[in-house]
Design a protein around this nucleic acid. Structure first.
Lengths: 168, 168
DNA sequence: TTTTCCATGTAACTCGTTACATGATTTC
DNA sequence: GAAATCATGTAACGAGTTACATGGAAAA
């Protein structure tokens, strides 16, 4: 339900059309959810059917016509419900990268350390990128801060693993 | 490819049948991947077709017959390839829980803090559980240690957010 | 004796993705 | 004039899940 929450939350701030929603999500919220274009359009259609949002066709000049979505009272209620549920609970995360770690002794120690050094470097690059993101408005900043916090924690973790592997 | 890596890695240690693989994954590796029973059987079939593993039917006493899977030389090669790729790269993680945070100002400050306190408590419970897991053999321990490290970091993060919300 | 565990599967379905189609408009 | 961007969609496909089916054995 995170995708619905996100779409409703964005539409709550001001009405938007599908393309706009999608591109905002792609470049500002890519750490939380990933939402392809066709999926976004489909979700918006579904939400319109449910009565959470209304659709208005707009055509400016000779541009391709836009479908502008606006939150309804029902949509606002749903948003509140989803928001409370999201804030109160922990969304589980799967660490696919741990599978390799579980079998790290299948490789020569030195090679394993080399490979993890590569992982470390990639992580460091991502951390630098996250730190370079300009400050966002309001509580959107939490999303960026969290990413920085998480990546720093992962970096420390990889260092700990490398250290342990070196020690033996 | 994490699922394949995991299955190959487990079969590398010793031959196993599908049910055994699935139940091990469910209770020891649930933090890395999630793999339902039908998916596990399907994956094993596919891997057999690819020649990574062989299948032998075994029937012990009057029990339901088992299909025992054993790694082939090709499977070992594939395992090595997948393992190196996994260790060297960062597997991206999506923080669905951040969507709520991005809209936290839609709620009265006090209520938001209350909801995050619930999240905090759930997190704390998970952390206690992870810490209570008995020590595993070899590098499987990394998986547990990472979970503990991650949950502790998330707990600190939630505390920071709550603190920031209290301060305004 | 009824439930749980062992052990394997099939069939239907949902969700989401990829690839494609369309067409105007701005940028290089 | 070509490429990228704006703007919306459809159609085909695939991966994975749920629900169901089977049947013996052990435990409660």
């Amino acid at each position: 339900m995170e995708r619905e929450l996100l779409l409703l939350g964005l539409l709550r701030q001001h009405e938007m059309h599908g393309y706009e929603l999608h591109s905002f999500i792609e470049n500002a919220m890519s750490t939380c959810v990933d939402l392809k274009k066709p999926t976004a359009y489909l979700l918006l259609d579904n939400m319109a059917t449910l009565g959470w949002i209304t659709v208005t066709e707009q055509r400016a000049g000779n541009r391709p016509p836009r479908k502008v979505y606006r939150l309804t009272a029902g949509g606002e209620a749903e948003f509140q419900r989803l928001l409370r549920a999201n804030l109160a609970s922990v969304v589980a995360v799967k660490f696919g990268g741990d599978v390799g770690l579980a079998f790290v002794d299948a490789l020569p120690r030195a090679e394993a350390i080399g490979l993890l050094a590569q992982r470390r470097q990639a992580l460091q690059g991502q951390l630098a990128e996250s730190k370079a993101v300009p400050v966002h408005a309001g509580s959107f900043q939490f999303v960026i801060d969290h990413q920085v916090h998480y990546l720093a924690s992962e970096l420390a973790w990889v260092d700990k693993v490398i250290e342990q592997l070196c020690a033996t």
